[in-house]
Write a protein that binds this DNA or RNA. Structure first.
Lengths: 245, 245
DNA sequence: TGTACATCAGTGAACGCGCGTTCACTGATGTAC
DNA sequence: TGTACATCAGTGAACGCGCGTTCACTGATGTAC
């Protein structure tokens, strides 16, 4: 252990672990999370089933790796999309939403592992936490920056919010370093909920087969509603660029 | 076959089928849809595994039965709740939403079968359709009746809606016998999406463990946002009865 | 620079489990005469 | 009303499959002297 450089064994090991995770992801896509099996992964890796245990303690550990990687892949996709996005919060919100949708459509099973029905008999451990909040942190950051710049109109209080829930909002404000008032947190919460609800419907194919010809547009219409709800200035129709998907 | 009354054999048969479905539902709850197994059902029924095939053609057929029953159980729950609800559309909307949430929390696995990740290797056949749209039909009906009575303020057009999607909306208007304009359909669509997104987050436990002390209140706050989005008159805070859950 | 040794990737057999589905059968039960 | 027969629920064995995980092992490879 005196050397800082990883030796050839460590490199081979890292490569094999990467292969196992890649094959695991492929199996997720074809057979679903519940059917993820170390024996099948071993088969595809061209190795006897017990050999996989050199790299992965158990089936559940592999699932956990895939969960963490999934949150990070989604978070990376959003971050990458936001680098090229203009500074306008409404646009950044839309870009974030579209990126989540596109990532989910490209990786439906991986998305399902993160945001679908929990895998029976598997409990994601606590250390999935940090990567798991990257997207919501992004969304809240965008809304908060818009608020700080005075770009959103704060709605007059519409709802009773109890002290208990208000305290939860204080904690959220601290955790994400926000300045927004409760009403805006509520709107952001609804926006977040709708975003993943809409992606679920789309990815899991829960609209009727022929109900909507252009689901990307339906998704965008939902986003329009959320921007309105958040108090962003209503985008002029001719400014909404639907071609950038 | 000359008698109209079901004979004792038919009665016993119906009872056994009901038992199989009940046991199937219990297994859904404890082991998840992917793990639903006819052998396990037979075991709980106190019968040899092959006997179940007298009643059910295959595992997939049992799943389909449970899907159809699930949509109907949820639809029945909503219908029952609406019978006792006042005539006010905003209240009926809230009652519908709360009933969906409560049913889902009471039957999380059954709910997951309907609205969670699709069961891998199982495709719900087309004839699940009719019961599957009961809830959305209810929601649209409520919004439509509010519109017809002039109880919602129609927002000025905010979004570009292409001809293709507009045609889809025409079909929806016909299917559900609606009078509402496109903008209201979009808002209702967002409301429907948010409803199931919020229930998903709640049932599948996807908020952080300690993020919200009172999830019923969080849900209600989401509903408040949706009522606002739909153009319902903002309910005065003291009129929102949070105790009726 | 060369060699001995420790490390560790991968093997193959085994344990005990569960699954969906088919098939020839037994025997109770309902029904037609 | 009584009996013969057809119906059909349930049996038990079998087929062929896949799973997670353990364990003693072989043999290649990296490393320390």
């Amino acid at each position: 252990m005196s050397s800082d450089q990883p030796g050839p064994r460590a490199l081979a090991r890292a490569q094999t672990i990467a292969d196992i995770k890649r094959i695991g992801r492929e199996h997720l896509a074809t057979h679903g999370a519940a059917a993820l099996s170390l024996r099948a992964v071993a088969r595809d890796l061209g190795v006897v089933s017990s050999a996989v245990y050199r790299y992965v303690r158990s089936r559940d550990e592999l699932l956990t790796m895939l969960v963490v990687d999934g949150y990070n892949a989604l978070g990376d996709a959003v971050d990458a999309a936001l680098i090229d996005a203009p500074d306008d919060p409404a646009t950044r919100f839309r870009v974030t939403a579209r990126t989540v949708r596109e990532w989910a459509l490209a990786e439906p099973a991986w998305y399902g592992l993160l945001f679908g029905t929990p895998v029976p008999g598997y409990d994601a451990p606590a250390d999935t936490g940090a990567p798991g909040i990257r997207v919501v942190a992004n969304l809240l950051g965008i809304v908060d920056s818009a608020y700080r710049r005075g770009q959103i109109s704060v709605p007059t209080a519409e709802s009773v919010i109890t002290a208990r829930t208000s305290a939860d909002f204080v904690a959220i404000r601290e955790q994400f370093d926000l300045a927004v008032p409760d009403q805006v947190i509520v709107a952001a919460l609804t926006a977040w909920t709708t975003l993943f609800g809409a992606v679920n419907f789309d990815v899991f194919d829960m609209y009727g087969r022929d109900t909507f010809a252009d689901r990307a547009e339906i998704f965008d219409l939902n986003i329009d509603q959320l921007l309105h709800l958040l108090g962003f200035a209503v985008p002029r129709p001719d400014h909404v660029d639907r071609s950038v998907r």
